[in-house]
């Protein structure tokens, strides 16, 4: 096992300094965990239905392989400094490539697998974790990705700029949601956890934005037909 493989694995397991948003059980109080489940079940049930209707019988193989892709993409780390490495969370990337409904199902599958099989994030806390990493990141990432494209034409720089900011802000949004859940649970005082999470993830978010934009740039160059709105204006 090479060192980079080890760090890749560690990153995949959430051990390396990447987005630290997988809340273990015991860190969220029972009411917060329950509220997380209620919101998650409602949104995921709707997303599953819409994604299934849009994708029809392609839904399962497409979203299943895409979830495996996001999981593996989280292993793609890059050295930052002092032996630490950054890696992807993937919410913004998923929403740019797949649209919001399929992206929510895909991220739910990723976060669910991580909790169920790898103890990366708790089981009782799974509702809260899917909400933070699978729903909030995607909703915010989607909104941010759309905004500049409402006022500007879909050119390559606009798409890439939007993807970068979407990646960055989506991680921040996930971190803020996590901070609020920890504060509401009485696990961490808001005036400490919020600035800490926002500060750390401001840096991690830049990495997320850079990877997201570079990934979209690659896809734009090789398979522009896969990016909605980009097919006619091949750069």
């Amino acid at each position: 096992m090479t060192p980079s493989f080890a760090t890749g694995i560690a990153a995949g397991a959430g051990l390396a300094p990447g987005p630290a948003l997988h809340i273990p059980d015991g860190f969220v109080s029972a009411p917060v965990a329950a509220a997380g489940w209620v919101a998650t079940v409602a949104v995921v049930a709707l997303s599953v239905r819409v994604a299934n209707r849009r994708l029809e019988e392609r839904a399962v193989p497409l979203m299943g392989v895409m979830a495996a892709f996001i999981f593996a993409a989280q292993m793609m780390n890059f050295p930052v400094a002092g032996g630490t490495s950054g890696h992807l969370l993937g919410g913004a990337l998923a929403v740019v490539l797949l649209g919001p409904w399929a992206a929510i199902v895909v991220m739910t599958a990723v976060v669910g697998l991580q909790a169920l099989l790898f103890q990366d994030g708790g089981l009782a806390a799974l509702g809260a974790n899917v909400l933070n990493m699978g729903i909030v990141t995607i909703a915010v990432g989607w909104a941010v990705y759309r905004i500049p494209r409402l006022v500007a034409r879909d050119s390559r720089p606009v798409l890439l700029g939007a993807a970068f900011v979407a990646g960055w802000i989506s991680v921040e949004a996930g971190a803020i949601a996590t901070a609020f859940m920890l504060a509401l649970s009485g696990t961490s005082p808001l005036n400490v956890v919020l600035p800490a999470m926002v500060g750390v993830h401001a840096l991690i978010g830049i990495g997320e934005g850079l990877i997201t934009a570079a990934a979209i740039a690659f896809v734009l160059s090789t398979r522009p037909d896969l990016i909605p709105g980009a097919a006619p204006t091949r750069a």
Binding site: M66, A72, A73, L88, L93, A213, A214, A217, V219, L226
Partner: peptide, 13 residues
């Protein structure tokens, strides 16, 4: 890393 992710996406899709 991002271009690797993009390449992995195309291959996965």
């Amino acid at each position: 890393a991002g271009r690797m992710v993009g390449s992995l996406f195309v291959r996965s899709l």
